[in-house]
Design a protein around this nucleic acid. Structure first.
Length: 429
RNA sequence: GGAGGAGUGGCCGAGUGGCUUAAGGCGGCGGUCUUGAAAACCGUUGUACGCAAGUACCGUGGGUUCAAAUCCUACCUCCUCCGCCA
């Protein structure tokens, strides 16, 4: 039953138990499926037992209803009273078994895509292409936090006074540049790439977080509001994907493509000591997200085109990057396949992630009950969902600072952003 | 925050304890008629689990009853009025 929710893929797991376990084993972290078979069998046994009793109850109750003289059916009434108690008991057992089963299933990550390279960690990711020339500077490249503070467009000290570590205060041309990037990205994706702009809530409920896979497993990564049971979104993926939760779409409206600018909030629990300086890892950052709902047979191609839409942003900004195919050990919980785009940062002499584009196949669609009906078909099918950053705005901002820095400490404005900067072509002291 | 009202199928809407496996209408689909179309008429039209019989679902969760869309209860959402507020 699992009221309201779509049955998790119990049938698939039942029929492909060994294969699923094997595929999941290539992921990082262990998945314990040992209790599945027993719970599944218990559930089915209870279900058939309780349904038989309910069928009997329905028939006898109808008979009692039709009988005018209730004294003739006192025996039936007494018996049904007992049957009702039995049903109540069995329903309680069933609910408990289903809760355990649901908890187990909700904790199982997505099965990796067949095309994802098998590997244990980041080390085994596969670079599939790179674009652009790394700038050859005839001076020592500065890190963006030094550049930003010297130019007076970033103030980390005051941000920490306001909120604490891992927050940033943008000032003047810096604030303007962040806003310019948001507008530039949204305009590009809506006007050139065919996405519909959305501006969703930044706080969502448990059902939404569960639909996309953040809950129940990753609650500790999320900011939560105390008085009402809501969470600050860690990515626009959550509200935007959940737009169509519990809906049946029609085949002709697919693919549905949305873009959204939102701030994102992450606790970054467990990353103490990493990227403590600068904009790389913040509790709050801006991101423009791309989200697609597609037919299953289109999802591989649609991921590729979404990836290109994200790459286009970097190409227009003339920022060098590479694309990495994540291996099975490095893919996130909900994703089946993920391409990361990593931008070149001269200040760190390293590529750093600036976008993550994933095909979730039917994983989120199942949890969030997002389906579509093919033309002429009777039964609805699960859609595939795809999303990716297009791009992380804060990281784009810092990539511009580091790649466009000049010997005198000033920073040039990329050509395509000038109209968004009121014609400004350089940030200087 | 205070006082009222309401949540029923894709949509509108009837239903205040048992011939409701939810009336009727609209929309959708199929058909009859037509040179074709419209109109009219006839039929059909939710989701999940299950091989099936069947079971569940009338905002959500509990409860009362042999029997709940219908009664009780808590919560959620929306509407109206008052207060406060960007």
């Amino acid at each position: 039953m699992f009221k309201g929710e779509i049955m998790l893929d119990i049938k698939y797991l039942r029929e492909n138990f060994a294969a699923a376990g094997k595929a999941l084993a290539t992921r990082s972290g262990s998945v314990d499926l040992s209790s599945f078979k027993q719970l599944d069998q218990q559930r089915r046994d209870l279900l058939s037992e309780v349904e038989a009793l309910k069928a009997e109850k329905n028939i006898v109750s109808a008979l009692i209803g039709k009988t005018k003289d209730k004294s003739q059916v006192q025996g039936e009434i007494a018996r049904m009273k007992e049957v009702s108690q039995q049903i109540k008991g069995l329903d309680d057992q069933l609910r408990s078994v289903e809760e355990q089963l649901s908890e187990l299933l909700m904790g199982i990550p997505n099965i990796p895509h067949q095309l994802s390279p098998v590997g244990l960690s980041e080390e085994d990711n596969v670079e599939i292409r790179s674009w652009g020339e790394k700038p050859s500077l005839d001076f020592t490249a500065k890190a963006h936090w030094d550049l930003g503070e010297e130019l007076g467009i970033l103030d980390f000290e005051r941000a920490s006074k306001l909120s604490g570590a891992r927050f940033a205060l943008y000032l003047g041309a810096g604030a303007r540049l962040e806003r310019a990037l948001i507008n530039f990205m949204l305009d590009l994706h809506t006007e050139q790439h065919g996405y519909t702009e959305t501006l969703p809530p930044f706080l969502v409920n448990r059902a939404s977080m569960t639909g996309t896979g953040q809950l129940p497993k990753f609650e500790s990564d999320l900011f939560h509001t105390e008085e009402v049971d809501l969470f600050l979104i860690p990515t626009a993926e959550v509200p935007v994907t959940n737009i169509h939760r519990d809906e049946i779409l029609s085949e002709k409206e697919l693919p549905l493509c949305y873009t959204a600018y939102t701030p994102c909030f992450r606790k970054e629990a467990g990353s103490h000591g990493r990227d403590t300086r600068g904009l790389i890892r913040q509790h709050q950052f801006n991101k423009v997200e791309l989200v697609k709902f597609v037919r299953p047979e289109d999802s591989d191609a649609e991921l590729e085109s979404l990836l290109q839409n994200a790459e286009t942003v970097l190409q227009l900004l003339k920022l060098p990057y590479r694309v990495v195919d994540l291996c099975t050990g490095d893919i996130g919980f909900s994703a089946a396949r993920t391409f990361d785009i990593e931008v070149w940062l001269p200040g760190q002499e390293a590529y750093r992630e600036i976008s993550s584009c994933s095909n979730f196949r039917d994983f989120q669609a199942r949890r969030a009950a997002i389906r579509f009906r093919r033309d002429g078909a009777k039964k609805p099918e699960l859609v595939h969902t795809i999303n990716g950053s297009g791009l992380a705005v804060g990281r784009t901002f810092l990539a511009i600072l580091e790649n466009y820095q000049q010997a005198d400490g000033s920073v040039l404005i990329p050509e395509v952003l000038k109209p968004y900067m009121g014609g400004l072509d350089k940030i200087e002291k």
